[in-house]
Amino acid sequence: MVNMLEIRKLTIRERSTGKVIIPDSSFDVKKGSCLAIVGESGSGKSLTCRAIMRLNKPGIEQAGDIWLGGENLAKLPEQEMRRRRGRRLCMIMQHGMRAFDPSRAVGVHLIETLAEHFDWSKSEMTGRMKRALESVRLNAPMDVMNAYPHQLSGGMLQRVMIALTLVLEPDVVIADEPTTALDTVSQYEVVEQFIRLRERLGSTMIFISHDLGVVRKIADEVLVMKDGRIVEHGTTGAVFTKAQHDYTRSLVTAKLSLHQHFRQVMGE
């Protein structure tokens, strides 16, 4: 299968101290597949994804190559890179509640984003957005678009981001712990929508999570990170059953024992 994204020798360091946070990281994401990046907090999962989008804070510098379908994003001028964001690479944030401008209605962000990438009329943008919102089970799309972020729940805002992604049809979707801040019911709904998003767009996806249950459900491949280094990379089945690295085994064992304890408590 062809690679959609190839990360080569990605190094991330702090500009002021020169401290290396991610040393020499390389991996591929196959076209149409979903790669889950797992690891504990501070292992460098989010930094890696933001580096792909070239969106890390000014105090962080990165080196290495990021190939997206034959184009090296690392070498693009900022203006060109901006055009790729949203259109070819889309990001879904962890906290829906904080992802939208708090002083504007949600719809303003959606329409501004679409206007930036397409020459559609306002009514066409609204129509497409409306259909996309309905498809992620937001039944009153116009109410959602006219609402301010604080008037919607975290799960609803995650689905708004998924709906925007559906309209933008990017090549790669990067989801940065999209289910972490949600309750179980919202988590289930959002994961279902992610699975449908993949089915409909066929896009390549990077899914950051430390919830191995969700990862098992959605990912084709798993990449395990620890202290900025990739310690394991393989198919989901292989990583869960035949993990090579001690750290991966401990992650999987911890997950399984929690699961067994839950079953015992529930009397199953």
Binding site: R50, M53, L55, K57, R82, R83, R84, R85, G86, R87, L89, C90, M91, M93, Q94, H95, R98, A99, F100, D101, P102, H109, E112, T113, E116, H117, M161, L164, L168
Partner: peptide, 15 residues
Amino acid sequence: NEDYAMYGRACGLPE
């Protein structure tokens, strides 16, 4: 440093 600034950039909005 708020997420909305990052998400705006991630959606390709001009600086």
